[in-house]
């Protein structure tokens, strides 16, 4: 006797391959992901550079001095 009446349905769901991307869809997704990664990386770099530029020479001054 099965503990869950849905076991058969669950097994079927596990066996189904789900959504399979075509090579073109997968390639487009990879390119989009790469573009997002580069954009986020560039944004982080921009904020870093702007922060340093705003601090100016004061970035090298120790607070205790």
């Amino acid at each position: 006797m099965s503990l869950s009446p849905d076991n058969d349905g669950l097994n079927k769901a596990v066996q189904e391959p789900g959504i399979v991307l075509t090579p073109q869809q997968k390639k487009s997704r990879d390119h989009r992901n790469l573009a997002i990664a580069l954009a986020v990386g560039f944004f982080v770099l921009l904020i870093y550079v702007v922060t340093i530029a705003k601090l100016g020479p004061g970035v090298l001054t120790h607070p205790a001095e």
Binding site: I19, L21, Q24, Q25, S28, R29, H31, R32, L34, A35
Partner: peptide, 12 residues
């Protein structure tokens, strides 16, 4: 059928 994009960075 779900919509799966084939747009590339160039399209954006």
């Amino acid at each position: 059928e779900p919509h799966i994009s084939i747009a590339g960075p160039r399209d954006y």
